[in-house]
Simulated scan of single mutants.
Amino acid sequence: MSHTAHIPSHRKPRRSASKLALRAGVAGGVLGTIAVAGAAGPANAEPVTETIEMPTLGSLAAGSNLASAVAASAEASQQEALDQSLQTLEQAALKKASQDAKKAKAEADRKAAAERAEKARLKAEKEREEAEEAAERASRTSTRTQLATNSSSNDGGSSSSSSSSSSDSGSSASDSGSRTQAPTGSAASIVAFARAQVGDAYVSGGTGPNSWDCSGLVQAAYRAAGIDLPRISYQQSSMGSSVSLGDLQPGDILYWGSRSGSYHVAIYVGGGKYVGAQNSSTGVVERSLDWDPPSGAVRIL
Rank of each mutant, 00 (worst) to 15 (best):
T33N: 11
L57W: 12
G156Q: 15
K126H: 10
D155S: 05
S64Q: 12
A61F: 11
G216Y: 03
S152E: 14
A131G: 11
S159D: 05
E107W: 00
R195C: 03
K102M: 03
R110A: 14
Y234D: 09
G156I: 15
A108C: 08
H3M: 15
R110E: 11
L20P: 05
Q249M: 09
A297M: 00
V48D: 05
I7C: 09
E130L: 09
L147Q: 14
Y255S: 00
A97P: 02
D109H: 02
A62I: 06
K96H: 12
L31M: 13
F193I: 03
G199N: 07
L248S: 00
A74C: 04
L94A: 15
A124Q: 14
A21I: 11
T88V: 09
R11H: 13
L301C: 00
S166A: 12
A114R: 04
A93P: 00
I190T: 02
G185Y: 02
R259M: 05
E115F: 00
T141D: 15
Q197V: 02
Q91Y: 08
K119M: 09
K126A: 10
E136L: 10
Q91S: 12
H264S: 07
A35T: 13
H3N: 14
A35E: 12
G170Y: 07
L301E: 06
L94D: 15
P55S: 07
A114Q: 08
H10P: 02
R116E: 13
G208F: 02
G206S: 02
A220I: 08
G206M: 03
S139Q: 14
G208S: 03
L89G: 13
V26W: 06
C214H: 10
S165I: 03
G199Q: 05
S18K: 09
A124K: 14
M54C: 10
S215R: 01
S163V: 03
V36I: 13
G29A: 12
T51I: 10
Q78C: 09
A72I: 11
A135R: 15
L217F: 06
W291F: 09
S73P: 08
I267A: 01
V191E: 03
T180S: 15
E132N: 15
A92Y: 08
E46H: 04
Y202A: 00
I52L: 07
S166M: 07
P183C: 04
D213M: 04
S142T: 13
N154F: 08
S172E: 08
G28R: 13
R14K: 11
H264Q: 09
N279C: 10
S238V: 03
S162M: 08
P250T: 02
G170Q: 08
A24C: 10
S163G: 06
V70I: 08
S166T: 12
A266Y: 01
L217T: 00
R144H: 04
T49Y: 07
A187F: 01
A224M: 07
A201W: 04
S204A: 10
S18M: 04
F193R: 03
R144C: 02
S139P: 05
G170M: 05
S73A: 14
A182G: 04
S262V: 02
Q181R: 06
R11P: 11
A192R: 04
S64H: 08
